[in-house]
């Protein structure tokens, strides 16, 4: 078994899905001979040719609209949007078309596809190479949203996304693309969408996180234990839509204290949805305010990005506030 990074797990999943199913076709900017700006598709153009690893014109609306046509026709397109910050030109195709084809046609037409895109800050990318736009899409019925946090999950979740009958937005935490390695089996496996994972179990405080923030949350949880003997349970949501409500429920009922960690702006971010769900469903179990640790309500900064983003210190502060309330 090989030890892979997240970006290598993306590549392996794409490679294996293409080998498994001829209808899987990749499209995006610079994904051909260049292998993608993050190298997610490196070697795939050489292996599968330009018809299956399609370098497109520079037009995100075009990429997604074109993929819709491919999907209607029975292909399984996997579109790469070079950075999540550049997904906006495709917003109409994603929100009006991708998300609504099944519904608007009474189930007669479907457009299964995956839209992969690197997201998130902490990479010195500044205002237009750092954003986390998942909440915009979570607000749109008809889209599944998947965000892995580890190489093993990346492969299993991406394979599941490509095989899913519905369109999936697959946000890749680019800050940790190469941060660490983990054993990733060559063998075929999938991780079902809609299943969270309890990454650390504990009895005192529940921390909900995903993507790069999962690691910040874990770091804070370890410090909380060492320094304050507070035993946190950390849940990696993995899929934001549909959310694994049962795993969250079990943890919330056990700890009665909840924190979410997301790196997007605070107002109407996904953390707000998590807070609302917890409050609406299990208020009688809740012992302290449901805390959101998030980015700030500003555009994404540049030199001050580490002050902007949730850090282990900020999460630890939240843990203590939650625990001592």
């Amino acid at each position: 078994m090989a030890e892979l990074t997240i970006i290598e797990a993306v590549r392996l999943a794409l490679d294996q899905e293409m080998a498994r199913d001829e209808s899987v076709v990749l499209l995006g900017e610079d994904i051909g001979p260049d292998g993608g700006v993050f190298r997610a598709t490196q070697g795939l153009y050489e292996k599968y040719g330009g018809k299956r690893v399609l370098d497109t014109p520079l037009n995100e609306s075009g990429i997604i609209g074109f993929a819709v046509g491919m999907a209607l026709y029975g292909l399984r397109p996997v579109a790469e949007i070079q950075f999540a910050d550049f997904i906006w030109p495709a917003m109409d195709q994603i929100v009006s078309e991708v998300a609504k084809f099944r519904y608007r046609s009474g189930g007669m037409f479907t457009v299964p596809m995956v839209i992969r895109t690197p997201y998130g800050g902490g990479v010195k990318g500044a205002i237009y190479h750092s954003q986390s736009p998942e909440a915009y899409f979570a607000h749109t019925p008809g889209l599944k949203i998947v965000i892995p946090s580890s190489p093993y999950d990346t492969k299993g979740l991406l394979a599941a996304s490509i095989r899913d009958p519905d369109p999936v937005l697959f946000f890749e935490p680019k800050r940790i693309y190469r941060a660490f390695r983990e054993e990733v089996p060559e063998e075929d496996y999938t991780i079902p969408l809609g299943q969270a994972s309890v990454v650390r179990s504990g009895n005192d405080v529940t921390i909900l996180a995903y993507g790069a923030m999962l690691h910040v949350a874990m770091d804070a949880a370890e410090r909380a234990m060492e320094q304050h003997k507070i035993d946190c349970e950390v849940i990696d949501l993995r899929t934001l839509v549909p959310l694994d409500i049962e795993t969250i429920e079990a943890s919330v009922k056990k700890t009665g204290r909840v924190i979410s960690v997301t790196e997007s702006p605070k107002t109407a971010g996904f953390g707000a949805e998590l807070s609302a769900l917890v409050a609406e469903r299990w208020i009688e179990y809740i012992e302290s305010p449901i805390i959101r640790v998030t980015g700030y309500d500003t555009p994404f900064p540049f030199v001050l990005e580490h002050d902007y983003m949730p850090s282990a210190e900020k999460v630890l502060d939240g843990i203590i506030r939650s625990f001592n309330f």
């Binding site: 076709v25 018809k51 299956r52 399609l54 609306s61 075009g62 609209g65 074109f66 993929a67 819709v68 046509g69 491919m70 999907a71 209607l72 026709y73 029975g74 292909l75 397109p77 109409d92 195709q93 009006s96 078309e97 609504k100 084809f101 608007r104 046609s105 007669m108 037409f109």
Partner: peptide
Amino acid sequence: INPSAPIGTQIVQAAGAGYAARYK
């Protein structure tokens, strides 16, 4: 194909279908 209402979206979709036809 089931049409939407936002003007023009089907134009690029048809191109994608035309590409898929060639692919298949």
